[in-house]
């Protein structure tokens, strides 16, 4: 139980609850809150010393955020 494990677990729990039940029911609020479990998962991978997993996860997270932004813009443009 090193401190990265505990802090990552706390970030994953708090971030998941805040994504599922946000204060404002909005796409952007959920998208910004989705960054918190991503950093929690990154700290959790860090506590097991997985360097390649960290690199791949960091790159794929930015790509996922870009795709979500495109989807949100298309959805808001239709409405």
């Amino acid at each position: 139980m090193n401190p990265e494990f505990v802090l990552g677990l706390f970030l994953i729990l708090a971030g998941t609850v805040s994504v599922a039940f946000p204060r404002r029911k909005d796409y952007i609020t959920r998208l910004i809150n989705l960054e918190i479990p991503a950093w929690g998962l990154l700290l959790l991978m860090l506590s097991y010393n997985e360097a390649l997993a960290l690199l791949t996860f960091g790159a794929v997270t930015a790509l996922t955020v870009y795709i979500f932004v495109r989807v949100i813009q298309k959805r808001e443009g239709d409405a």
């Binding site: 952007i28 960091g58 790159a59 870009y66 932004v69």
Partner: peptide, 29 residues
């Protein structure tokens, strides 16, 4: 932890992700 290459890559990728979010915020806010 000593993973300096990972730290460099993450420190360069994380602002990119923030700028992508900012593209959606500027359109909607």
């Amino acid at each position: 932890r000593g993973l300096l290459d990972v730290a460099t890559a993450v420190a360069l990728i994380a602002p990119l992700s923030t700028i992508f979010i900012l593209m959606a915020v500027r359109r909607a806010a």
